[in-house]
Structure formats: structure tokens, C-alpha cells
């Protein structure tokens, strides 16, 4: 879709969880990796995330969740994107995600799950390669 352009990433915190450190670090890190990061702060509803993702035409939505509500919150975002015909946007999830839930998230269509301790550089690399694969495919 945006040949030659910057990769645009929405970093969002869905739900009421206020632990922002991970999202902030990832936002800074992705900026320094050359991406354009849209940072919307705490307490985003799924609807807000979906509408932002679409208006900003982002390549990637990154959800940061540490409250244990990752399954239901991610489900809502995925459903919302699908309802708007925007399920081509890559969704990734980060936070405290117990092992058994990682596969469940992937089954929903989440591209990758990054647990605590993941280097931001690894997230950036994943995004860069996943986005370029998708663009070439599309």
C-alpha cells in the first residue's frame, strides 16, 4: 500500500490498565527505529483503537496489556477491524501474556505476541519484515 513510505504504527493501551512503561518504551524504540508511531496513551476503547488505526492508515497496531484482560480486549479490537474491513492491518500484542494464551491470540489473527523481556529491536525487526512481506503480497 505505501510503497517507499514510512511504516506507521499505532501503539495503544486498551482497557483500564495503567501500566504504561512497556508501551512507552516500545513507542520510543520504534520511533528510533525509523517508524512513525502514533501514541494515544491510556484507557483506549476498542472502538477508539479501530477508528484511529483506520484514519491514520497504520500498517501495524500494537496493543500493550498487562491486566490479564488480553483475550477479551484483543478480541474486541480484532472484531472491530474486521467489521470495518480493515483486518489487513497487522496486529501485535505485548505485555504479561501467559504461555497458554499466546496461541489463543494467534488464533484470533494476532501476528505476534511479545512477552516482557523482548528487546524493542526484535519488535522493530519483526514489524519491518512482516510489513514488507504483506506489501509484497498485497
Amino acid at each position: 500500500m505505501n510503497q517507499g513510505g514510512k511504516i506507521r504504527v499505532l501503539v495503544a493501551k486498551p482497557g483500564l490498565d495503567g501500566h504504561e512503561r512497556g508501551a512507552q518504551v516500545v513507542a520510543y524504540g520504534l520511533r528510533d527505529a525509523g517508524f512513525e508511531v502514533i501514541y494515544t496513551g491510556l484507557r483506549q476503547t476498542a472502538e477508539q483503537i479501530v477508528s484511529t488505526a483506520i484514519q491514520e492508515d497504520v500498517d501495524v497496531v500494537g496493543l500493550s496489556i498487562l491486566s490479564g484482560a488480553h483475550l477479551s480486549l484483543t478480541r474486541k479490537v480484532m472484531d472491530g477491524l474486521k467489521a470495518q474491513g480493515a483486518d489487513d492491518i497487522l496486529v501485535i500484542v505485548g505485555g504479561i501474556i501467559p504461555d497458554p494464551d499466546i496461541q489463543k491470540l494467534k488464533d484470533m489473527g494476532v501476528g505476534e505476541v511479545f512477552v516482557s523481556g523482548t528487546p524493542v529491536s526484535a519488535i522493530a525487526q519483526y514489524i519491518a519484515s512482516a510489513v514488507s512481506t504483506r506489501k509484497n503480497a498485497g
Binding site: 482497557g15 483500564l16 484507557r43 476503547t45 491486566s67 490479564g68 484482560a69 477479551s72 480486549l73
Partner: peptide, 11 residues
């Protein structure tokens, strides 16, 4: 509240 969905009684 709409904000509560999915979070009631969780943490």
C-alpha cells in the same frame, strides 16, 4: 459502565 467490559473482578 462501557469501560468495565471484560475487566470486572479481574485484577
Amino acid at each position: 459502565s462501557p469501560y468495565a467490559e471484560g475487566e470486572v473482578g479481574r485484577v
